[in-house]
């Protein structure tokens, strides 16, 4: 049994004000096996974040099912960690409390919580910043806190929604390397949403190409390149060209459609 099974998933957003329903996702079928790193790649507005939210449990499907480890998803839970686009840390808590937030809710002893948090703070390379507040750290550092927070829950699945989108190129590349390192050390299934082809190819074991509105899966490509991924290698760029072609034909189809409608 795959860890994540998405079967005939559709999502329609009703808009009573404008009387035009938007089909965000149309008949999505995906299986993600254990310890796979799946990247959801697609242009803006293709519904990849919506898809991730449904796995996370923040939104409910209009039809179809999402199953994690055999359980249908009805609500968010600590078995699926989420790293958001904005770090979404509690601004009134220091870093270590944010990382150990899961334990705070469970009601553990302060000393224990702190010790456990320290492990994950070290893991994401933020040693020394435990007592700082989110407002005192940079965006990239806050994202690392978000990752540590998700990791601490030891979830089966980690869902990441364009977490490096707001970072500069250099920091982004560093964070990508960090993430791969942590994933390799920690194991676990990751679903990663991005609109950057390089990023998808650098990180994922599989890349799912999505088409824009309504969102559909065009193709799921397994990536068998050796790690660390070399973005200058010919195999990397071959795959990249393939993906670009797919995306271009997507855009052409879209343009044709809109021309038809006019």
């Amino acid at each position: 049994m795959a860890t994540i099974e998405i079967s005939h998933l559709s999502k329609i957003f009703k808009d009573p004000k404008r009387k035009a329903d938007v089909t965000a996702l149309d008949d999505i079928n995906i299986e993600v096996a254990k310890n796979q790193f799946l990247c959801l790649l697609g242009p803006s507005g293709c519904g990849k974040s919506t898809l991730l939210n449904m796995i996370a449990g923040f939104e409910k499907p209009s039809s179809g099912t999402v199953t994690v480890d055999g359980q249908r998803i009805a609500a968010p839970g600590s078995d699926r960690g989420v790293v958001f686009q904005q770090a979404n840390l509690m601004p009134w808590l220091p870093i270590w409390e944010n990382v150990a937030f899961h334990l705070l809710l469970r009601g553990g002893q302060k000393g224990e919580r702190r010790a456990i948090a320290q492990r994950y703070i070290d893991m994401v390379g933020l040693t020394g910043f435990e007592n700082h507040y989110p407002s005192e750290l940079s965006g990239g550092m806050n994202q690392r806190v978000g990752i540590a927070r998700a990791l601490l829950m030891n979830p089966q699945v980690i869902l990441m929604d364009e977490p490096f989108g707001a970072l500069d190129e250099q920091t982004r590349m560093d964070m990508q390397n960090e993430l791969v390192r942590i994933w390799q050390q920690h194991q676990g299934t990751i679903v990663f949403v991005t609109h950057g082809i390089d990023e998808a190819l650098t990180l994922g074991t599989h890349v799912a190409i999505m088409s824009a509105r309504p969102g559909r899966i065009r193709e799921i490509i397994p990536i068998e390149l050796p790690r660390p991924r070399d973005i200058t290698s010919p195999q990397f760029n071959q795959t990249k060209r393939h993906i670009l072609d797919l995306l271009r034909s997507e855009r052409a189809n879209q343009t044709l459609e809109t021309m038809d409608q006019q």
Binding site: G77, R80, R149
Partner: peptide, 14 residues
């Protein structure tokens, strides 16, 4: 209250 904070809280199982 920022809805995203609530989502983060729900995510950690609150």
């Amino acid at each position: 209250c920022d809805r995203n904070l609530i989502r983060a809280g729900a995510m950690v199982g609150g």
